[in-house]
Design a protein around this nucleic acid. Structure first.
Lengths: 136, 136
DNA sequence: TTTTAAATTTGTAATGATTATATTTTATAT
DNA sequence: ATATAAAATATAATCATTACAAATTTAAAA
């Protein structure tokens, strides 16, 4: 995903590009580490001292309505966000708790059982120990 | 999964089969509807009036440690439990909020990117509208 | 440019699921 | 029967998220 200008991208999706919204969206596309609300808040509060956590929540919920971000629910009570809305899998390392992306082939599911169902979202995530942690 | 006797099954997995534990496990294998803690609690409280929600939590956490149930995290803040520990996918209907099972082929993932990673769990879930809800 | 209205952000309080802790009950062993 | 350990329970604490109201900013109109 190559987004030249976050503001334009937001506008294109019907979102008024306020400073907070631009910064939050930029944070998501620059840091592909699938951050939690708390991480986003702590990082951005450094440059926007008046930032409120409620704003981060509101903004992410707005982004989700407009379909420019997706939620990643791997762990209960640890909601993460992803600005890459294309279909891909996530691998969460239980050691370092990093979340990695990996490719997926859409038709590689056995979906005959779901004939007649309207599939709107596909989510795949694995858990285990990443290469890095295995080597150390 | 054909479990003749819940008590024996628990014992076999190193869990002392108390009344509460047996009932909770039986509930999971009889009702393959992937219930939430609240559902389990409300249903079983009918036959075990002294049942505490804490016990349901404790028991499910114990079951998870012993690997006889799995968590299904589709929605944040709606943790569901499944006594079928084999690999399969889940489809959650956003209309009726039912959760359906569907088969999955293990090797049908493109996992080359995860070479050198130790994969311990694989989760797949879809969201959309089920056949039933589409027809009505 | 001033005024007014609407949208956005913010702070605080409320909610709800889960966990922590202490007490009570039940089971087990001596 | 008594002592000890395990399990269940009730209550309080925690934490992420949402609700709500007030303050601020932005946009629009006069």
């Amino acid at each position: 995903m190559t987004i030249i200008n976050a503001g334009d991208y937001l506008k294109k999706h019907g979102i008024k590009p306020s400073l907070q919204r631009i910064r939050i969206f930029e944070y998501l596309i620059k840091n592909k580490n699938h951050p939690t609300v708390d991480t986003i808040f702590r990082e951005l509060a450094k440059e926007i001292p008046t930032l409120s956590k409620t704003t981060v929540y509101n903004t992410l919920n707005l982004f989700m309505e407009k379909n420019i971000v997706k939620v990643i629910t791997i762990e209960e009570n640890e909601t993460r966000y992803d600005a890459d809305t294309s279909l891909h899998g996530h691998f969460k390392c239980t050691e370092c708790s990093r979340v990695y992306d990996f490719d997926l082939d859409v038709p590689k599911f056995k979906e005959e059982i779901l004939k007649g169902f309207e599939i709107q979202e596909r989510h795949v995530y694995f858990k285990g120990i990443c290469k890095d942690c295995l080597l150390n």
